[in-house]
Every structure is written in structure tokens, then in C-alpha cells.
Design a protein around this nucleic acid. Structure first.
Lengths: 195, 195
DNA sequence: GTCTATAGAAAGATAGAC
DNA sequence: GTCTATCTTTCTATAGAC
């Protein structure tokens, strides 16, 4: 069972990812150096390259994990069949999830442009898949007659932007509780799409 | 009227600002070098320092100019007294202005964190002043009874996020005209705040 | 006002000892 | 698996010629 000195591969990898996520979200991908990430983890800069081929791959990994986790979480969510109730569920889910993963959401909206074209497209596809979930709900409600939307695609983008915006102003321990915020947004969205 | 060789101070300054705006918006402040900006303008890197004390001051100047221009433009806008009509005017104005200044809007939402604390606070004050314009409209409509909003502050942030989001998906020559987009957003906002 | 040249610091990434 | 040391490139910013 003897191990080499300083062998911590099972724990160092996740710690590097966590440190990178936090630093990238706070200062921006390009403004953060590999040395800073290494210092946060408590290793030397060179050691990072045992876990990632380069800096961009580290960013891509964070973004892809986030999007895949988001899609999986929505899939696992209990989803009513009725469009109106399903929309409520989406709103609550999106806000709750965004507030739980503030840093990753920030990254996903800010650092796409630092990806190579191929990686950019891959994240774009995952994002489109998520947007399609909301769009399907709106389309179903529209077909059923419970929603009145002149343009379903625009409404999809408008609602997601509105909900994701919660990340720009929400602060832990502020005036409103998370449940309270979910409720207010849910009501605004309900009214905005209503016939 | 003899001038020194290569004297273009009246025109080089604005061209530097334009190049910096475009590059910062496309690649991010930290990812753009002074050399790139200089190359875009057609001067040497050293020449930039005749127009700005450093790189951050260049960013700060762009952000401040944008916010001041935004506030001045809204001030110059014809504004109905009735809250409902005034809200319509705000929505149309915000979308129109955002689409006319895509790059600056992008910068304003992405690069605040690259400012020093003092400069950050200065831009924050300008942004708050703008948000206060919308919040005042919502408050007036609420007091008058034409709007029904459980939380005026949250509604302010939600509406601005929704409207500004147009920048993330709008492309020139796309499916919808600018006027059409303004109209659809106006209707969604109207419904969202209605009693 | 712009140029060339460069100082001085810091970046990403790699090599090889342990 | 992590370290130290370093290669190579690039950066911001300045100095001084023209």
C-alpha cells in the first residue's frame, strides 16, 4: 500500500476544477493565470498539467460539466404534463438551479468566446438543447390555447434571460428568500405568456 | 500651418477608443493586448499611451461614456406622463438603444470586474441611476393601480435583464425586424406587470 | 505625434530530479 | 504525483530618436 510522497490524484483533480471555476468566475478566464490556480490548490503550476492538457481544456471541462449537469437535473425533475404547470416547474427549477451554481452560470454566459470553435459549438449545442426544453413547453401551451405568444422563439430567449438575470443581483441573506423569488418570477412569467 | 509628421491627435484618439471597444467586446478585456489595439488602429503600441494613462483607464472611459450617453439619450427621449405609456416608451427605448450599441452593452455587463474598486463604484452609480428610471415608472404605475407588482425592485431587475438579453441572440438581417422585436417585448412586459 | 527599441515582469508550458 | 528550474513567448509601459 506504499504510496509515493504527495500522491493525491483522486482529490487534487476536483480541487483544481473547483479553484479554476471560482477564479474564472470572479476575474475572468483570461485574467487568471495557471500559477494563481495552482496557488489556490496548494500545488506548483507544473502539477496542473497532470490533470489538463492546457488552460482552455480546463475551461471547456467546466462549461461542459455544468451544461450536462443542468440537463440531467432538469431531466430528473418531476414535470407535470400540463403546459402551464410545466412552465411553473421550469421557472422554479431554473432559478433554483442558477442560484445553486452561481459561478458556473456566470462562466457559461461570459467565457464562451474563449473557447476554440469546436469547443464553442459543443457548448452551443448543449445550451440549445436546454433552451429547446422551454421552447417545447411554450409551443405546447400555445397549441393548447393556454398561452398567447406572437413568437415562441423570442419568448423562450426573453424568459431565460429574465430568469438567469437573478444571478446578477441576488445576494445570500438579502431582502428576499429564494422561495419568495421563485414565486415572484413564476407569477411574472405566467402573466407574460398568458392569453 | 506646418504640422509635424504623422500628427493626427484629433482623429487617433477616437479611433483607439473604437478599436478597443470592438476588441474588448469580442475577446474580453484581459484577452486583448495593447499591441492588438495599436495594430487595429495602425500605430505602434507605445503611441497608445499618449491617449490613455493605462489599459484600465481605456476600459473605464468606454464604460463611462456608454453609461452617460445612455442616460442622456433617455433624458432626451419623449416620455409620456402616464405610467403605462411611459413603460412602453422605456421598453422601446432600451431595446432600440441596446441594439444600436451592442458592443458597449456587452462590455458593460461583462467587464466591470476588471475595474479598480473606485472605477467599479463609479460605473455602478451610473447603472443604478438608469435602473432607477425604470423603477420610478413601475412605482408610479403601482401607486396608480395600473400595475400589480409584489416587488418593484425585483420587477425592475427582471425587466432590464429580459430586455438586455436581446443582445445575446439578435443578429442583423434575422427573422424579426427591430420594430417587430420592440413590439413583442413591449407586449410581454405590459402583460407581466399588469394587474 | 509617432516611431524604434527595450526594460522588466509575467505568462503558458515542459524537463527532469525525487 | 509533485517539485524546482527553466525555455520561450508575450505582456504593459517607458525612453529617446526623429
Amino acid at each position: 500500500m506504499a504510496r509515493k510522497t504527495g500522491s493525491h490524484s483522486e482529490i487534487t483533480g476536483p480541487r483544481i476544477r473547483a479553484a479554476a471555476l471560482s477564479l474564472f468566475a470572479r476575474h475572468g478566464f483570461a485574467a487568471v493565470s495557471m500559477r494563481q490556480i495552482a496557488a489556490e490548490v496548494g500545488v506548483q503550476a507544473g502539477a496542473l498539467y497532470l490533470y489538463t492538457p492546457d488552460k482552455e481544456a480546463l475551461l471547456f471541462d467546466l462549461l461542459r460539466s455544468h451544461m450536462e449537469e443542468l440537463l440531467a437535473a432538469w431531466e430528473a425533475e418531476p414535470k407535470p404534463a400540463e403546459p402551464a404547470a410545466r412552465l411553473d416547474a421550469f421557472v422554479r427549477f431554473h432559478i433554483r438551479h442558477s442560484l445553486m451554481r452561481t459561478e458556473a452560470v456566470f462562466l457559461s454566459y461570459m467565457e464562451l468566446r474563449n473557447l476554440s470553435p469546436g469547443n464553442f459549438a459543443a457548448i452551443g449545442r448543449l445550451r440549445s438543447a436546454y433552451e429547446a426544453e422551454l421552447e417545447a413547453i411554450l409551443r405546447a401551451g400555445q397549441a393548447e390555447g393556454s398561452f398567447a405568444l406572437p413568437d415562441t422563439r423570442l419568448a423562450t430567449m426573453a424568459i431565460i434571460a429574465m430568469l438567469t438575470g437573478v444571478n446578477t443581483w441576488y445576494r445570500e441573506g438579502g431582502r428576499l428568500s429564494r422561495a419568495g423569488i421563485e414565486e415572484i418570477y413564476r407569477d411574472m412569467v405566467r402573466k407574460a405568456v398568458a392569453g
